[in-house]
Design a protein around this nucleic acid. Structure first.
Length: 277
DNA sequence: GAGATTTGACCGTC
DNA sequence: GACGGTCAAATCTC
């Protein structure tokens, strides 16, 4: 969900830039200049029923795009607030995992050594070239190692860590750290459960990479079902939205989900900026 | 002495 | 029964 919000905020920002970079128009709304942006806008205007002056038409498209992103952000935040912010665990998405989760549910949330119910996600860490062999990736949280196992088929053992404040503050976050077989400088770090301790609250101003922000690395993730209208709306949004950028200035660097820069977005209520369903 | 790490044993899942 | 995740006693570090 955090990744979704980041992407939507990114799209909103690009729509804002698009709106700001449209070429000037004359008094009648006709585009001035012959640059690529002007030609692009004329092309868009021709495609959109040939109506209205090109400049106004393009601004309308850009405004609508901006409003669409804002509305999508609002929907995403509503879903998040409703409790949909936890990324689906690998097991939850798969059929076998669903069965296991249901089995656990049948057991009445009993003690389970494999905590299937908690969200789980994987991130890759690359260590500095000059780091020694004992180096372990530092994500800013305080972890306590509680186990190490040799894993079948893996050259390096897997380390098991839990939050240092597990007992003091009841934080259930754990992580597993395993050095990649293919690249000694890369660690695969699997997180399970979100931090509920004070160190997580202290970091909230500059949030750590959220669960979904590293979804690209979660190779076990399966496409979630879309049982409710909000999720269907988001899916339709994802499938249906296409932004033509030919002739426009190069886009900013792509978002990789590892930005540590906090972002904010103030979105207007749907309809406040000319949005219509 | 308190807290962290190590490591063999135990247990649940597949 | 194999494997992965966790426990807990022993050990280490500061």
């Amino acid at each position: 969900m955090h990744l979704l919000l980041s992407i939507l905020a990114d799209g909103e920002e690009q729509a804002r830039r698009l709106l700001g970079e449209l070429p000037p128009a004359d008094d009648e709304g006709q585009l001035l200049g012959r640059g690529p942006a002007a030609e692009c806008c004329r092309g868009v205007a021709r495609q959109l029923l040939g109506r209205g002056p090109a400049a106004e038409c393009c601004r309308g498209v850009a405004r609508q795009l901006l409003c669409t992103f804002r509305k999508a952000i609002a929907v995403a935040k509503a879903i998040e607030a409703a409790g949909g912010d936890s990324p689906r665990s690998a097991d939850e998405g798969a059929g076998a995992g669903r069965d296991a989760a249901q089995a656990q549910e049948r057991q009445g949330q009993g003690v389970c050594k494999r905590r299937k119910g908690l969200p789980r996600w994987t991130k890759k860490f690359r260590i500095p070239d000059d780091a020694n062999l004992e180096y372990t990736p530092d994500d800013g949280f305080s972890w306590r190692k509680y186990g190490q196992k040799d894993i079948l088929g893996a050259k390096f053992p897997r380390g098991y860590y839990r939050c240092t404040y597990r007992n003091a503050q009841g934080c259930a976050a754990t992580r597993q750290v395993q050095r990649s077989d293919a690249d000694l400088a890369v660690f695969d770090v699997t997180y399970q459960g979100a931090h509920t301790c004070l160190q997580a609250q202290r970091r909230s101003a500059a949030p750590p990479p959220p669960p979904a922000a590293v979804a690209a690395h979660d190779v076990q993730r399966s496409p979630p079902a879309l049982p409710d209208p909000d999720m269907q709306l988001l899916e339709n949004f994802r499938n249906g939205l296409k932004v033509e950028t030919d002739g426009l200035p190069p886009p900013p660097p792509p978002f990789h989900g590892h930005s540590t820069t906090a972002f904010s977005f103030a979105y207007a209520a749907a309809g406040a900026a000319g949005y219509s369903p």
